[in-house]
Computed example of a mutant assay.
Amino acid sequence: MSDAHDTPPRPGVRDTLQRLMPKLVLSPTFLAAVFFLYGFILWTIWLSLTRSTLLPNNVWAGLAQYRYLFGNGIWWTSLINLGIFGTLYIGLSMAIGLFLAILLDQRIRGEGIFRAIYLYPMALSLIVTGVAWKWMLNPGLGLEKLVHDLGFTHFSFDWLINPKMAIYTVVVAAVWQSSGFVMALFLAGLRGVDDSVIKAAMIDGASLPRIYWSVIIPSLRPSFFSALILLTGLAIKSFDLIMAMTGGGPGFSTYLPANFMYDFAFQRGQIALGAASAVMMLVAVGLLVGPFILLESRRKSDV
């Protein structure tokens, strides 16, 4: 017969409340996130399968909106612009961010000041960034006028109003804002590299550029992965910066899928078509980011 003293005491009401309190505190936030995030994603997918126009309705349309979407020349123009913008934006932001991080990693004097200067653009809203760069690149107000006032009247810089070059002005503004944030990610990764590895490479006679190229930069894989995911999402859903700088113009030269979604859903009264474009943007994020997530998770599981 077992002793009565061997039976563990039942938890009291106070112990039960202490155990459940974190769940009770977090449950409203969790439920709100599930409803407002995943709930509206499902609702958007449903809208894309209906014939909704000015107001949502439940008239089933199947894949008709997607067929119309991919038969729309404006949609294809926005995809081409996104390819140009996304490639340059992600590539330049990562290259400049890595370069700035390597410079700051040299423990230069006034590092905190430079770090704050590089990170400051990220503190600005995209609307403020767009308006500021629109003013600076406006031929009648900004850089071109300044150079003309200095006496160089033949200087011309009309990228903002040139349909062939306008997309690159958006790239410049976007890279200016994001490269400092990417620098912070890479700098955190650089500061986490084991000093013994660097010292061993120096003892073997490797130069500093060689050490960075062959030893340090390959070890920044998690930082590259994080930066790539963040920049890809920012590129695909870019809207504020475009609207503030160019409004999608001249013509459709800076028109991106996010502009297409807003224009057709809220300006032209074609909610279902706008929802279909939003779903395709979500699919694009999944197709671009998903393989990297799978590769990274597989690499960690192998380790």
Rank of each mutant, 00 (worst) to 15 (best):
G112N: 14
S93P: 01
F155N: 04
M94K: 00
T129Y: 04
V131K: 08
W159M: 07
L88I: 14
G91R: 00
G140M: 02
G86Y: 04
R115L: 15
A95H: 03
L88W: 13
W135N: 08
I117V: 15
D158P: 00
G140R: 01
Y89W: 01
L126G: 07
G142N: 07
L119K: 07
L98A: 02
A132H: 02
L150H: 01
T153P: 06
P139V: 03
D105T: 09
G97Y: 07
G142D: 06
M94T: 02
L124E: 05
I117G: 12
P139E: 06
H148N: 12
M94Y: 01
V128P: 01
Y89D: 03
I102T: 10
L126A: 11
G91Q: 00
K145E: 14
W135A: 09
G86C: 08
G91W: 00
W159N: 02
I108S: 13
L119R: 07
K134E: 01
A116T: 14
W159F: 08
D149N: 00
L143W: 13
L98D: 01
G91Y: 00
I117K: 10
A116K: 08
I90V: 15
V131G: 03
L126P: 03
G110M: 12
V147P: 01
Y118P: 03
A101V: 12
W135R: 07
L124S: 10
L141W: 09
D105W: 13
R109S: 15
L146R: 07
Y89K: 03
W133E: 07
S125V: 10
M122R: 13
A101L: 11
T129N: 09
L141H: 05
D158T: 08
A116V: 12
G112H: 12
L146N: 04
M94V: 07
L98P: 01
I117E: 08
S125H: 10
F85V: 00
T129M: 12
F157L: 15
L92V: 13
F114R: 10
L92N: 05
L160C: 00
P139G: 05
L126I: 02
F155C: 02
L119D: 05
I90D: 07
L92G: 04
W133Q: 08
R115H: 14
S93I: 04
S156W: 01
L146A: 13
N138M: 06
P121E: 05
